[in-house]
């Protein structure tokens, strides 16, 4: 596509604004994390790195981080299994209400977190009579993690020709072998990307978590939220926040990398483009 100089500049400006809009606040967090003062003041008078070792050594922060990793990992694992199975059911089998199931599975992602939160809270404490704990947080997080995995997996399955599975059956493979050796390998990158995104979402979730977590237990976002406005050592909390930012960048980065590499392999071995191909 050719762009006129004007529209090119407009686009350039838009990209610049978008990036600034997203990253300037993050940069300010970084400045706060390096502010030696005991109170939040702008602008910082000098810069220091002393908060970072303190943040890393803080036991409460460490526990909270560990909890977050645990919740994210288990909820994602749950979601990977259920989301994959659901996507297979929807994309590979015809059954009554298939469209509705697709729709129903997708809804939780659009629900306000606070609604999900109070709904799950009521279910756990009132209906099921459970004590809130990390386990309830995991179940709660799994509800939206499944959506992410399901979406990724279903999109992949829709693009993947069913003739691959037919070919496998034709060559003598049982349905289970076909799933293991053909369907799953072709879904793998979609599942990894979906799993990483799901983990990232779980890792910084606070609203639903707040309604489903046990007394005295904290995930990292909750730790940050609760500690932020305590007067002592504000820089330490910001340092924790910076670390959290860095940590959540890893899965997102990996997810984008993986889905990009995908484009080449997913196009795969179909006849598309065959007419343009050279003979030999």
């Amino acid at each position: 596509m050719r762009l006129s100089p004007v529209s090119r500049n407009v686009l350039r400006l838009a990209v610049g604004d978008t990036l600034a809009f997203i990253y300037i606040p993050l940069f300010i967090i970084l400045l706060y994390a390096m502010n030696p003062a005991q109170t939040l003041a702008w602008p910082p008078e000098s810069l220091t790195l002393e908060w970072f070792p303190k943040a890393i050594q803080d036991q409460a922060a460490r526990d909270a981080l560990l909890n977050s990793l645990k919740v994210g990992a288990i909820a994602t694992a749950f979601a990977l299994i259920l989301g994959t199975l659901a996507s297979l059911a929807v994309a590979r089998h015809r059954f009554f209400g298939r469209e509705s199931v697709t729709f129903l599975v997708l809804i939780p992602i659009a629900l306000p977190g606070i609604v999900t939160g109070i709904a799950l809270n009521a279910t756990f404490t009132q209906v099921l009579g459970m004590d809130l704990s990390l386990f309830t947080v995991i179940v709660a997080h799994a509800t939206f993690c499944i959506v992410i995995v399901f979406n990724n997996a279903a999109a992949r399955l829709r693009r993947m020709s069913t003739s691959l599975e037919d070919a496998s059956a034709d060559l003598g493979a049982t349905p289970w072998t076909t799933f293991r050796r053909v369907t799953l390998p072709n879904m793998r990158s979609a599942l990894v990307a979906g799993g990483l995104l799901a983990f990232a979402l779980s890792f910084d979730e606070i609203v639903v978590t707040n309604f489903t977590i046990g007394v005295g237990e904290k995930t990292l976002p909750i730790y940050i939220f609760e500690t932020l406005f305590r007067p002592n050592q504000p820089g330490k909390v910001y340092a924790v926040a910076v670390i959290a930012i860095l940590l959540s960048m890893i899965p997102v980065y990996l997810a984008t990398r993986l889905t990009r590499g995908e484009a080449a392999t997913a196009r795969g071995a179909g006849a598309a483009g065959a007419t343009t191909g050279a003979t030999n």
Partner: peptide
């Protein structure tokens, strides 16, 4: 018999080669 129990093999229209 299911496809995987038959002594028939198929060359598919879109070839259906396993891309991985």
């Amino acid at each position: 018999l299911a496809p995987y129990d038959r002594e028939v093999n198929t060359v598919f229209q879109d070839y259906a080669l396993f891309p991985h």
